[in-house]
């Protein structure tokens, strides 16, 4: 029972801190560009403001348009609850393994795209079409790269995988390098960062995700924005805890957990600094190049799988 409480606590931590993470990312980027940028609490203020505002719905919106933000948020929050953040072994990670995690994110995307198609605007259709196209390439790459880890850990359960990465003597495994690269590429695409999509853009013909949620306002928009921030945090945590899990708590003692939490935050910060540097340094890709980029991720994952079978399976 205690473990359940810890699990919910760590999920709440992830969900609660995700606006902060987004704000930190924005701040870091501003600093690199010699701007002051908004403070770290700005995203919270934005969310509160949006939740309190009167939502404006397009007059032709159907029930799917109204339902979608709730589904997106609930499903994203659930996937946040199954990822090990501070504790390795949590009860909820048995509810959904890593394949289900990918499925849950697909569910959120499915409903976002449907909501975008709901109004019959050109922008909505465009965003939905692009998002689903890219997802169709990103999702298998993501699955393949986590499968490499699953093959190493002989499990698709996220807790077990993290445990294996932390404790088992895996030696030097080239396939893991492939998996990490592929998953990082996918994570950038899935969270809509540069060079795939620009989260700060509106009204550009190259936008993908923003085009889908243009018509949302008020609490609906707040839910979608928040879900996006959770998704960013989720992918960052996934990368950290699957590939560099050192410091994460095996047992639920206060000292361990405090240490794990601080290690997690530090690693997140390092990852965000890297991401900011990359976003500042790179230009956004042409939209026709994105499939190639994702194809590369897919291929790297397949190569990782092949190297796993050729080099690492002991015959």
């Amino acid at each position: 029972m205690k473990l359940w409480a810890y699990n919910i606590l760590q999920a709440a931590l992830l969900i609660g801190l995700s606006p902060l993470a987004a704000a930190v990312l924005r701040k870091l980027k501003a600093l690199l560009q010699n701007r002051r940028g908004p403070g770290p609490l700005q995203t919270y203020r934005d969310l509160v403001k949006l939740f309190n505002k009167e939502p404006v719905l397009p007059d032709r919106a159907s029930w799917i348009f109204r339902l979608a933000p709730y589904v997106v948020f609930a499903v994203t929050a659930l996937s946040a609850a199954i990822v090990p953040v501070i504790l390795v072994h949590t009860p909820l990670s048995a509810v959904a393994d890593v394949i289900t995690l990918v499925g849950l994110l697909a569910m959120a995307r499915f409903f976002t795209a449907l909501a975008a198609m709901d109004l019959g605007t050109a922008f909505g259709g465009m965003g939905a079409s692009r998002e689903m196209t890219f997802a169709a390439l990103a999702e298998p790459a993501m699955l393949m790269s986590v499968f490499i880890l699953s093959l190493a850990a002989q499990s698709t359960n996220l807790s077990t995988v993290t445990d294996t990465m932390l404790n088992a003597d895996l030696g030097l495994r080239p396939s893991l390098a492939f998996a990490l690269t592929a998953m990082a590429l996918v994570a950038i695409a899935e969270t809509g960062r540069i060079p795939v999509d620009n989260p700060a853009t509106h009204l550009e013909l190259t936008m993908v995700h923003e085009a889908m949620v243009l018509e949302y306002s008020g609490r609906y928009l707040a839910l979608i924005e928040w879900a996006n921030q959770i998704k960013l945090m989720l992918f960052a945590t996934l990368l950290i805890n699957l590939f560099v899990p050192w410091g994460i708590a095996m047992e639920a003692t206060a000292v361990n957990m405090a240490f794990a939490a601080s290690a997690w935050l530090l690693k997140l910060l390092a990852l965000f600094v890297a991401l900011t540097l990359m976003e500042t340094w790179m230009a956004k890709m042409r939209i026709f190049r994105v499939p190639e980029y994702l194809g590369l991720a897919f291929l790297l994952a397949i190569l990782g799988m092949l190297t796993h079978f050729i080099l690492e399976v002991v015959i």
Binding site: G171, L172, F178, L296, L299, L311
Partner: peptide, 25 residues
């Protein structure tokens, strides 16, 4: 010997990666 084997495996994987990188450029 074990570490050498692992290092060589790693080198082989990286070599494969460069071959694919050449193919992709």
């Amino acid at each position: 010997a074990e570490l050498l084997k692992q290092l060589l495996s790693l080198a082989a994987a990286l070599f494969l990666l460069t071959a694919f990188a050449l193919l992709a450029q």
